[in-house]
């Protein structure tokens, strides 16, 4: 695979993951368990949206087809979206949202830490900036996971169920394909399997503090990164892309 293709796919994977998660978090604004959490969740959503836009801007330049960030976000269909299947899962209750966030924040932490040293200077710069945000996201989500896991019997039950349900999407984080191999060879991005130990080192202590049981790994690997998605993404994009598709060519 030509390096330019691999690089572009890498950027879209990063952009789409941040964008889809931002979209999910945006659903919470005005409906969170407490006013302060409306602001907290909005803060994470804004950061992720900002990351997506930086990745899209770079992707668009590399691609050289004149596609804007909005073309990329609003005109591609599900099969062209390369986000992790984890982030398109529905919010569920606040506990499920926090579990999803913890799993992804830990991943972005270890990934962006690696990417800071990418041979691609622009990617490294975006990762360095994003890392500061991700450290705060991690603080926020991990703090909440511990409160909910080690809170009341009800909260513990809810987050354990959520963890049991979402764990099966974590295998995808460390799956590698030819894109990853090409990028690792050029020192642009890490081989995903390299990140697993660091990710577990982040996640497991928090699960322990939260008195949660780590679920067993499952064999089936989701392939959101390759455009194979759960049924949820279609609905998410239908809502997100509606205006762009209903008013083709319009500026907003």
């Amino acid at each position: 695979m030509p390096e330019s293709t691999a690089r572009l796919r890498c950027l879209l994977r990063l952009a789409d993951t941040s964008l889809v998660l931002a979209q999910r978090l945006g659903e919470w604004v005005g409906h969170a368990p407490e006013l302060e959490e409306d602001l907290g969740v909005a803060n994470v959503a804004l950061d992720l949206l900002g990351q997506a836009r930086l990745f899209f801007a770079y992707a668009s330049e590399l691609e050289g087809l004149g596609r804007t960030e909005d073309d990329l976000a609003f005109a591609r269909d599900t099969g062209e979206f390369l986000n992790l299947a984890l982030v398109e899962q529905p919010n569920g209750d606040f506990g499920k949202t926090i579990v999803r966030q913890v799993l992804l924040d830990a991943f972005q932490l270890v990934l962006y830490e690696w990417l800071q040293r990418s041979s691609d200077a622009r990617l490294a710069a975006i990762a360095a900036k994003s890392l500061k945000e991700t450290r705060y996201h991690w603080r926020y989500s991990a703090g909440w996971l511990v409160r909910l896991g080690d809170g009341t019997e009800e909260s513990h039950g809810r987050v354990q169920s959520a963890l049991d349900e979402l764990w099966r999407f974590t295998g995808e984080l460390f799956a590698a394909d030819e894109v990853d191999l090409a990028l690792a060879a050029s020192q642009i991005a890490p081989a995903p399997s390299e990140l697993r130990a660091a990710w577990l080192a982040q996640v497991e202590p928090v699960l322990r503090d939260a008195t949660l049981t780590r679920p067993p790994d499952v064999p089936y690997r989701w392939q959101g990164r390759c455009g194979e998605h759960s049924e949820h993404l279609g609905h998410l994009l239908a809502e997100m892309q509606y205006m762009h598709r209903a008013y083709p060519g319009a500026s907003w």
Binding site: G30, H31, F56, M243
Partner: peptide, 28 residues
Amino acid sequence: GNWITRAPSLRRKAVLIAKVQDEGGHGM
């Protein structure tokens, strides 16, 4: 907030989230 998930551009989405967040902050 009703339009956050359907904002017609990424820029509008970001600005709208920030605005609604501000409103929550004002309430606080």
